[in-house]
Amino acid sequence: MRKILYLFLLIFLSNLGYTQEIDKLPADKLATEMANTIMVKWPDSLTHQPGATAKWSYDLGVFFEGIANIYAVSHQKHYLAYMQHMMDLFVQPDGSLSRYSLTDYNIDYVKNGRTLLFLYKATKEDKYLKAASLLREQLKTHPRTQEGGFWHKKVYPNQMWLDGIYMGQPFYAEWSASFDEVKNFDDIANQFLIIEKHVRDPKTGLLYHGWDESRQQKWANKFTGNSPNFWGRAMGWYGMALVDVLDYFPKNHAKRRQLEDILVRYAAAIEKVQNPQNSLWYQVLDQADRKGNYPEASASCMFVYTLAKGVRKGYLKRKFEESAVKGFSGIKQHFLEFDKNGMLHLKGTVQVSGLGGTPYRSGTFEYYMSEPVIEDDPKGMGAFILAADQMKYF
């Protein structure tokens, strides 16, 4: 533990007085600076409360993927040490997971499986593979809609949310590719196909935040089951899931082309709602001019990541590169800021947005405007690192 804290101190001291203009810094440098901020702010867990219990949270998995990408290039051991230290708060020596419950059937809990697989491949320690296998087991019995779509959570019955596609499917795909479970790719593709069929708006191509198969939720349209609005980060999650799953999807699989076609439709839809004045995307995507609406950092980062990776991998035409480049420029100008100590911060991320629950979240425009917008939200910072990592190629 002392060694890790010493490494964080070195990171912090190396940044003192570092106030170069953000626009002049290369994308990979900005990614590294944001990762360093994360490690200094949260050396032990995502809580600042002394003695508070660390929470098994998908936020960890989002920024760990960004940090893993940095480590893959730099091979600087303190990044790997940080990831191990944080995950070992949960992963026990026998591979069990503390503060995780399979029978909660929360798809959010599956997200960190990719970090566990990364740590297993990097360290060869069996406990990480055993822990990841618990998340794989959850997917075997996770409740589903009649068409086979994973419920978002057991406490949200009959519902699929765009968020949940990102939380579950990239891990499911990586596991299946890594352990020769090729039969799973039909199921993985169907998760994308089922929800897109139900939540895609034929006029705009945008995707509604959630869908209730039972049409019983107060927020659900009584005819379609859809929630009322297009939430930026929800579509951001879905896009990142698409390009990440395609990394593992068999080239000759019959449904691969369908996923690529979804990505093309998706890219065209989000390009249309990119604000021409600041090149960013808004909390409610199709209502940028409505009073109270605002450019939102995490969604903007996720869209840049999706477009840039889609172009780089050849899934999208080169024309979408311009949208990604403009978006990343807007992110740098609008959301990034160095403090007096040289630490890089990300402004403008909505802390949370959901549907139903207690207190009740209605999915209306007014609801989405009511949630707090904060600086240095971990999932926003993670999305920024991922976006910057892709933008280093452009």
Results as ranks from 00 to 15, higher is better:
Arg2Pro: 02
Lys3Ala: 13
Leu5Asp: 13
Phe8Lys: 13
Leu10Gly: 10
Ser14Lys: 11
Ser14Gln: 07
Tyr18Met: 02
Gln20Val: 10
Gln20Arg: 13
Glu21Arg: 13
Asp23Pro: 00
Ala31Ile: 07
Thr37Ala: 03
Met39Phe: 00
Val40Leu: 11
Trp42Tyr: 15
Pro43Cys: 05
Leu46Arg: 10
His48Leu: 15
Lys55Val: 15
Tyr58Glu: 03
Asp59Ser: 02
Leu60Tyr: 15
Gly61Tyr: 02
Gly61Ser: 10
Val62His: 01
Phe63His: 13
Ile67Gln: 00
Asn69Ala: 15
Tyr71Lys: 04
Lys77Tyr: 00
Lys77Cys: 00
Leu80His: 08
Tyr82Ile: 01
Gln84Met: 14
Asp88Lys: 13
Leu89Gly: 14
Ser98Cys: 10
Ser98Trp: 00
Arg99Phe: 10
Thr103Ile: 08
Ile107Trp: 00
Tyr109Ala: 13
Tyr109Lys: 04
Asn112Thr: 05
Thr115Tyr: 10
Phe118Glu: 03
Thr123Phe: 07
Glu125Ala: 12
Tyr128Ile: 00
Tyr128Val: 01
Lys140Leu: 13
Lys140Tyr: 00
Pro143His: 12
Arg144Phe: 02
Phe150Ala: 05
Pro157Ser: 10
Asn158Phe: 15
Tyr166Asp: 01
Gly168Gln: 05
Gly168Thr: 09
Gln169Asp: 04
Pro170Tyr: 01
Ser176Thr: 07
Ser178His: 10
Phe179Thr: 09
Asn184Glu: 15
Phe185Ser: 02
Gln191Val: 06
Asp201Val: 07
Trp211Glu: 06
Trp211Asn: 07
Ser214Thr: 11
Trp219Asn: 08
Trp219Val: 05
Asn221Ser: 12
Asn221Asp: 15
Lys222Met: 10
Gly225Ile: 05
Gly225Ala: 04
Pro228Tyr: 03
Pro228His: 01
Pro228Gly: 06
Asn229Gly: 08
Asn229Ser: 13
Phe230Asp: 09
Met235Phe: 01
Tyr238Arg: 05
Leu246Tyr: 02
Phe249Lys: 07
Arg257Phe: 12
Asp261Asn: 15
Tyr266Gly: 04
Tyr266Ile: 03
Ala267Gly: 10
Ile270Tyr: 05
Lys272Cys: 04
Pro276Thr: 06
Gln277Ile: 09
Asn278Trp: 09
Leu280Val: 11
Trp281Glu: 08
Tyr282Phe: 15
Leu285Phe: 09
Leu285Asn: 12
Ala288Asn: 03
Asp289Leu: 12
Gly292Tyr: 11
Asn293Val: 09
Glu296Phe: 11
Ser298His: 03
Met302Phe: 10
Ala308Gln: 04
Arg312Ser: 11
Lys313His: 08
Gly314Lys: 00
Gly314Tyr: 01
Lys319Pro: 00
Val325Phe: 12
Gly327Asp: 06
Gly330Ile: 12
Gly330Arg: 06
Lys332Val: 01
Lys340Tyr: 07
Gly342Gln: 04
Met343Pro: 01
Leu346Ser: 06
Thr358Trp: 07
Ser362Arg: 02
Val373Gly: 12
Asp376Ala: 01
Met381Ser: 09
Phe384Val: 09
Ala388Gln: 07
Asp389Val: 02
Gln390Pro: 04
Gln390Asn: 08
Met391Val: 08
Lys392Pro: 02
